[in-house]
Structures are given as structure tokens and as C-alpha cells.
Amino acid sequence: MDLNTRVPASPDAPLKVAVILGSNREGRFGPVVAEWFLRRAAAHPGVGTDLIDVAETEVPTAAPVAPRLARADAFVVLTPEYNHSYPAPLKSLVDRHFSEWQAKPVAFVSYGGISGGLRAVEHLRQVFAELHAVSVRDTVSFHNAGALFDDLGEPRDPGPVDGAAKRMLDQLVWWGRALREARIRHPYGG
């Protein structure tokens, strides 16, 4: 589903989910994780996605990202872990906006070495709480991510991560619908 299509704000309308790819490093593994996640999200009946790649938002000719964030009902942040935290371009994207995040849920897909990016997620939870966003409890985490995917970009053992993605998306849809309805009934004044 294209997020630019006008969807009525009914309680059961699919959520407009902005999926944010948070790394811009050369040779990054993030696109593999993003493509895997987007395939899982496409199979979920409650969501439509819009991929926002921080590497593309940094170029001078990039379309403004604020309207895309504002249109979103919910967010999924895909982040690696760099030095026990998340990447600077992701921090820059988050900090350039405020009202776009308010009263909306944020879920996380992380990847990295032994910690699987979970330390980056814990830092991001604090940042999004300050921005009046609600973080979804369950995450998807890839520990030693490079070894977990085959040459076609599919997890070697899909059962656990597919199950984690479904649980996370189910929670995101619940929170997204509840907060969308609340914003419609009573605009958030954070």
C-alpha cells in the first residue's frame, strides 16, 4: 500500500507505517534487514509501509522527510549498534523533527554483533519517550546478523525471527490504531 494514498481514518484502516533505515555506512548490512522486514510487513494485513533511508535523506536533492513522518500513524526503526548506541544520521533525523513523532508508536528492528543492537534500542527508547512517542515492548533483534542470513537475504532459521516480527507488528497495529483514534478524538497537545 502506498502511504501517499488517502486512507480514511476509520479504526480498522491499515496503519501508515514509516520504516526508517537508520544507517548510512558504506557496505552497510541494513538494506538486507530492511528488505526482509518489508516483506514481513507486506504480509501483515494491518499495515502499509513507506521506507525512509537516512542515507537518502542526507542528499541535497532529497524530498523533505517531514511530510512523510507526519503522515505516518506509526514507525519501525531499523538500527545497527555502533559503539553501544545508534548511528549519528539516525539521531540527526530524529532530532530534526518533533511533532511528527508525538502520540505515535515506535517499534524497533535491530542488528549487530553479540548484542544484536539491543543497546541501541534502549537508547532510542529514551529519546522517543522524550518526544512523546510510545515504544512497543517487543523487538526483532539479529545477533551476529551477517551470519544469520543466506545469500538471498533470507534468515537461515526464519521461524524465530518471523514469529518475533509478527508479534511486534501485532503490537504496533494495536498501539497504532488506539493512538490514531485518540489523536482524532482529542488532538495531542504534548
Rank of each mutant, 00 (worst) to 15 (best):
P155C: 08
F149C: 05
E58G: 04
T61M: 08
V7Y: 15
E130C: 11
E122F: 08
T49F: 01
E56L: 12
L131R: 13
V134Q: 09
D162H: 11
A147S: 15
A43F: 02
L169D: 03
A13F: 05
A103W: 09
D138I: 05
R167P: 03
P105G: 01
L38N: 00
L124A: 11
S115I: 01
G22H: 03
H186T: 08
E81I: 08
F108M: 06
S10Q: 14
V121I: 15
E56Y: 05
P87E: 07
F142M: 03
L69Q: 06
V134C: 01
R177F: 01
S99G: 12
K91S: 12
A18S: 13
L78W: 02
L179F: 09
N144P: 00
E81F: 05
D157M: 09
P11D: 14
L3W: 01
P14R: 13
W175S: 08
R183G: 10
R177D: 03
D138F: 11
F108E: 04
K104H: 11
A178E: 14
H97M: 12
L78E: 04
L131P: 00
R125W: 01
G22T: 03
R125D: 08
I184H: 12
G112T: 02
R119I: 00
N24Y: 03
G116N: 07
H44L: 01
G190N: 08
F128H: 06
F98A: 11
V94T: 04
N144E: 12
R185F: 04
A178T: 14
V127Q: 05
V54F: 09
V65K: 05
F128Y: 10
L38V: 02
P160G: 09
F29S: 06
R40Y: 00
R25A: 13
D162K: 08
W36E: 02
H97E: 15
L21M: 14
E100F: 06
R177A: 08
R167M: 07
R167H: 10
Y188V: 14
L21W: 00
A62P: 00
A13C: 07
A74M: 07
W175F: 15
A43I: 01
R167F: 01
A182H: 12
D12A: 15
V76I: 15
L51T: 04
R40L: 12
A129V: 14
E58H: 03
L15E: 03
V32E: 08
S85L: 04
Q102F: 05
R125Q: 13
D73Y: 11
P67W: 08
L21K: 07
A18V: 11
R39P: 00
G189D: 13
G117S: 10
V76E: 07
Y188D: 14
L69W: 02
D157H: 14
H97D: 07
H84E: 09
V109I: 14
V94D: 01
P87N: 07
A129N: 13
S141H: 10
I184A: 15
G153Y: 05
R156P: 01
S115V: 05
P64D: 15
P187D: 09
S115T: 13
E122K: 11
G22N: 04
G116P: 00
R39W: 02
G146Q: 14
F108N: 03
Q102H: 11
E181M: 14
P158L: 11
R119Y: 12
P87F: 12
